[in-house]
Design a protein around this nucleic acid. Structure first.
Lengths: 202, 202
DNA sequence: TGTAAACTACACCGTATAGTGTAATTATCT
DNA sequence: AGATAATTACACTATACGGTGTAGTTTACA
């Protein structure tokens, strides 16, 4: 009678994922060969296939891991004691965090590329996670009730805020060498000032 | 003595470019095969190579054409007689025009993908053309002199405006089915209101 | 230490692709 | 109509890649 003894595969799996991420980031999906991925991970190609079955599966595993991690953001809740500007800065910093390391930045670039390649896939994938504006929406609701923010269309207001953050910070970072914290500081400050000039209850 | 009579190649060239654009947009650079491009253009593969020499050259020709066309935007100049909101709307509409047809939208997506693939190439390519904020910068300068706009940092002010337009309109359009003019109208209006709430001289 | 799962090395297949060479055909200008 | 530039059809090369099969080696656990 043979027992079903199975060893821990999670370490090799992580090693493969790391190597694959590296290659995907630097070469893109199409030009990333499975041989190159195996070599970069320091693993035989056969092992890559034994773990993931196909290039598509390997890719999907990376995407799922990445988006799940992104989802686990620290929540920000309205605090009536704190300056609005301080709290809005926390929202901005949460966005910046997402592209603040070379790996996260690279993965963001890579995923953006893939999404632009297949809009339908992009929509389906993104829709599996709660919308990014949700947290700010809740925050705005409480701030309006507290008479600190004036807005008769919270969704529009939230979208204006994220438009500024993404248009001024996130997207430019993808096309340059990433975030220079000192350099973006005046821009963030200006964005928050602009936001409060429009929606702050003076 | 043979004369050097050469026929007009520009039409075939345009045909090839059209087909290539189509295939590049739908399959991306790597997966766009020269056979497929030739077939789509309704031209023999040999002719494609006779015209462009390589896939790289063909791609580069498309990029150059596209960016040169983009550059030939109608200029917008400051008009002291017209409402600021009206004039800012013209800037917004100029941005929207760039992604307003399926072909321009597709090319924008494709180019964005390529640029994300090679940041260095993106910088070099984009730097061959004058920065997109230049026109607004000149406009702002005159509006400040006319006491209609208040700003002690015109560049920052211009960047805030384009951050809102791009973050709320341009980028989202790339990930969806493009621009729905009626749907973006309230957002543009809100952006201009926000901009004037901060920088308008009440 | 024995044993089975996990891994490696490596050869191999089918297919796709960028690019070339060439002979025949078509279109254009005088 | 004649000359020739442009185009076509097509065969062909070299290479690369996703994926598989297998025999042997390493690793971890009882």
């Amino acid at each position: 009678m043979t027992q079903n003894i199975s060893r821990d595969k999670s370490k090799k799996r992580a090693t493969i994922l790391d190597g694959a991420i590296d290659v995907f980031i630097n070469m893109g999906f199409e030009l990333a060969s499975m041989d190159k991925i195996a070599e970069t991970a320091g693993v035989s190609k056969r092992t890559v296939y034994n773990h993931f079955g196909s290039k598509e599966n390997l890719f999907q595993a990376i995407v799922d891991d990445f988006l799940a991690q992104r989802q686990s953001l620290k929540t920000i809740t309205y605090n009536p004691e704190e300056y609005l500007a301080e709290q809005l800065l926390a929202f901005a910093n949460a966005e910046i965090f997402l592209i603040d390391s070379p790996k996260r930045l690279g993965l963001s670039r890579f995923l953006t590329r893939v999404f632009l390649n297949d809009i339908k896939y992009a929509r389906e994938t993104v829709s599996k996670y709660p919308p990014s504006h949700l947290m700010l929406l809740n925050w705005l609701k409480e701030a309006v009730e507290d008479n600190k923010i004036k807005s008769d269309n919270l969704l529009l207001t939230a979208r204006v805020f994220y438009a500024m953050i993404e248009g001024a910070i996130t997207w430019p970072a993808l096309f340059t060498d990433g975030i220079n914290k000192a350099a973006v500081e005046p821009m963030i400050s200006e964005i928050i000032t602009t936001f409060l000039a429009r929606y702050g209850n003076a």
